[in-house]
Design a protein around this nucleic acid. Structure first.
Lengths: 341, 341
DNA sequence: GGTTCCTCGTGAAACGGTTCATAATGTAGC
DNA sequence: GCTACATTATGAACCGTTTCACGAGGAACC
C-alpha cells in the first residue's frame, strides 16, 4: 500500500464535497457539533475519517486569531532547575487546557531572539523567558505588540513586565547565617562570576549575614570564583584552598554540583564532614539528600515558580504587571550539622 | 505611555500604505531584499520599524506551506535522559537552521495525542516521539499524512517509520556479565514492570548473560519489581531483600536513582560496597561518578541518539525508513569493583 | 391561512501573507 | 528611432479555515 508521495492534504472543502454538505457545515461539525443534525454530523464525520482529514492549524488560527499555546525559553533545557520550573508551568497550563512549548536559548541572545520571533509570529498567547541578556528592550517590544511576557528567575527592571524570581540575596544570607549559627567564624564562598546576577546577589546575602553577626566581611569571607559551575570546578577550587594551607571550617557553594566536587575531594583527603569542614550547597537538586553525606542546601521553590509564572500569563494582558519574589529555604542535612537527620 | 489595549497588529498592507508601495514590494523586502531598489527598501524598512510590524506566521505558512520547525514529544521533560537527548537534537537541527519545540506527554496517551495534533496542525516538518503506548497506529497515520515521524528510544515495529533506540538487551547483558566476571554467581535485579519495554529487554539481557556463563537463571537470578523507579523505590526493595535474610552479593538496578536508594540503605546498614555487596545502575546520570561510592552504570549515548534522530528527520520523507540501534557501554566504578578508579 | 419562531444548512467574505503574470521604466544595440 | 531586454514595482489570485447574514422548511399559535 503505497501512500501518495506528497499529495495535498485533504481540506475542509474536500470533506464537504465527500459528505455532500457545505464547508460551513463541516466547520460546524468541527467546532459546534450541537448545531448540526446527528444524521448530517455522522455523514461528515465519516467523510473526515475516510479522507483522514486534519485541520490546517495555520488557516484556523489566521481566521480565528487566537491560540491556546504559550512558549517558554529557558537557558538550558538540560538543567534540572529549569525543567522543574517547566513542570510547574505545565501543571498550571493544563488546568486551562493550554499547551506549553519549550525551547532553549543556550544562553545565546541570538537563539533567544530567534525563538522569541518564532513564538510571536505564530501568535502564542504569551512567552516566558529567562533572559540571556541584561537588556530586555526586545522583550518590552514584544509586550508592546500585545504578546504576554513573563520574566523567569529574574526580577523585572520594568514596571510594565511581570516577573517571577527567587530572592538570591536571602538565599545567600540563609546559608551564611546557618554556618555562623553552627559556630563558624570564617566562610569560604565558592561563587560564580558576578556578571551572573544570581551570583552577585548571593554574595550580597552572605555579606549581609556576616555584618549582622558583627563580623567584618573583609576578613571573615573569602570568595573564590569558580570558572565552571560543576563538580570539576568545585574540586579544583577546594583543592587550591587546601593547598594554600589556610583551611577553612565552612564552605558555601554556589550550586550543588560544585558542592559535590568539594565533598568528593574532602573525602579523598580524609577530611571529615561536617566536623572538620561544613559544606552547604544551593538548588537542593534531587540527589542532594541521597549523597552518602547528605548535602545541606538552599532550596528554591522551582515548581511554584513555574505555576506562578503561568498564573501571571493566563491572568491576561489587562491585569497590571506583578513582580513575584519567592523566598528560598534552607534544608539542613548532614554536611553542615551533626544534629541534622 | 499607555499602549493601545488590544489594537490589531500592523499588517503588511499597513506597512505598504505607510511606505507608499504595494504589498508585493513589502513582501519582497521581507523575503528577497535583493530584488528591490535600496531606496525603496529603506523606505519600507523604516515603515516596518515605525509600525513595529511582525509577520503573521500563520498567514505566511498558510500560503507558503512549509515551516522549518520540528517537534519532540518526550515522556518527561524533567528526566535527564530525555533532556540530554533533546540537546543532541537541538545541536543537529541548528546546523540546518531548524528550530526545536519540546513538549512532554507525561506518559499520558491523551497528552501525547494532543501535542501530536498540535504539531501536525501547525505543519511541522516532523515529530520525534517517545511513544507512551505500545500501539503506534496513530503515529503511522501521521506519517501517512505526510509529516515525518521518528520514534525515540524505541525500536520501530513498522518498516515505514524510522526509529532510534539503544539496545537494552545488550545493556542488561553487559551489567550482568560484569557482575559474573567479578565472581558473583547470583544476581538480584531490581527492575521495573515488564510492560515497559526497556525493563523487559534488560531482563532478557541479564538472562542471556547468565545462560552464557552456564548458570541457570531460575536460581541465579532473583528479579524484584520496583514500583516507583526512584531512590525511595530502591530503598524499599533492598530493605525487603535484606529482611528476607537471603542477602545477595550483587544487585543490578534498572536505573541510577534506584541504585542511589540501594547505596543509601546499604550505608546505613553498614554493608560495605562493593566488598560485601556490588551495585550496578543504569543510565550513567551526571552524578553517578560523583557519589561517595562512585556508581558503576550502563551508559547510553543520549547525545548521539538525539543527533541521529534529527538526522533521520532532516533526511526527508523520501528516503527509506531506517532503524538505528545504538550500543550501550558499561562504565565500571567503585560500587562494583575494587580495582576500579 | 397567515404570522411568528426555531432549527439546520448555505455560501461568501474575511484573515494576512506569498507568488506570479504583467506593466512601467530605463538602457543598450543596431 | 526602433527593438530587445533587464530591472523594479504592481495588484490580484490563492492558501484553508471561521463566521455570519440569510434562506428554506417546519411547527406552533391565533
Amino acid at each position: 500500500m503505497t501512500q501518495p508521495a506528497a499529495h495535498r492534504r485533504a481540506s475542509i472543502a474536500d470533506v464537504a464535497r465527500a459528505a455532500g454538505v457545505s464547508v460551513g457545515t463541516v466547520s460546524n461539525v468541527l467546532n459546534r457539533p450541537e448545531r448540526v443534525l446527528p444524521a448530517t454530523r455522522e455523514r461528515v464525520e465519516a467523510a473526515i475519517d475516510e479522507l483522514s482529514f486534519v485541520r490546517n492549524g495555520s488557516a484556523r488560527q489566521l481566521r480565528a486569531g487566537t491560540i491556546t499555546t504559550i512558549g517558554a525559553i529557558v537557558l538550558d533545557i538540560a538543567n534540572p532547575f529549569f525543567t522543574d520550573v517547566a513542570r510547574g508551568i505545565e501543571e498550571r497550563l493544563d488546568r486551562d487546557d493550554f499547551t506549553l512549548m519549550v525551547a532553549s536559548s543556550d544562553d545565546d541572545p541570538d537563539r533567544e531572539q530567534r525563538y522569541l520571533r518564532l513564538f510571536e509570529e505564530h501568535g502564542v498567547q504569551g512567552v516566558m523567558v529567562v533572559p540571556a541578556t541584561h537588556d530586555i528592550e526586545h522583550l518590552l517590544a514584544v509586550r508592546r505588540r500585545g504578546t504576554g511576557v513573563v520574566l523567569l528567575d529574574r526580577p523585572s527592571s520594568d514596571p510594565g513586565i511581570s516577573s517571577v524570581a527567587v530572592d538570591d540575596v536571602r538565599g545567600g544570607e540563609l546559608a551564611a547565617r546557618h554556618l555562623l549559627d553552627e559556630g563558624h567564624t570564617r566562610i569560604v564562598f565558592l561563587n560564580g562570576p558576578h556578571t551572573i546576577r544570581q551570583c552577585a546577589d548571593r554574595h550580597e546575602g552572605v555579606t549581609k549575614a556576616l555584618a549582622a553577626a558583627g563580623l567584618d566581611p573583609a576578613s571573615a569571607l573569602v570568595e573564590v570564583t569558580v570558572t565552571s559551575l560543576n563538580a570539576e570546578g568545585g574540586e579544583a577550587a577546594i583543592r587550591a584552598i587546601l593547598d594554600s594551607g589556610n583551611r577553612p571550617t565552612a564552605v558555601f557553594c554556589v550550586n550543588d554540583l560544585v558542592a559535590l566536587g568539594v565533598l568528593r575531594t574532602l573525602r579523598t583527603e580524609n577530611i571529615a564532614v561536617p566536623t572538620e569542614m561544613a559544606v552547604v550547597g544551593y538548588d537542593d537538586v534531587a540527589f542532594a539528600a541521597e549523597l552518602s553525606t547528605p548535602l545541606t542546601s538552599v532550596r528554591q521553590p522551582t515548581h511554584e515558580l513555574g505555576v506562578r509564572a503561568a498564573d501571571l500569563l493566563l491572568s491576561g494582558p489587562d491585569t497590571a504587571a506583578e513582580h513575584v519574589m519567592f523566598q528560598p529555604t534552607l534544608v539542613v542535612r548532614g554536611s553542615s550539622s551533626t544534629s541534622a537527620s
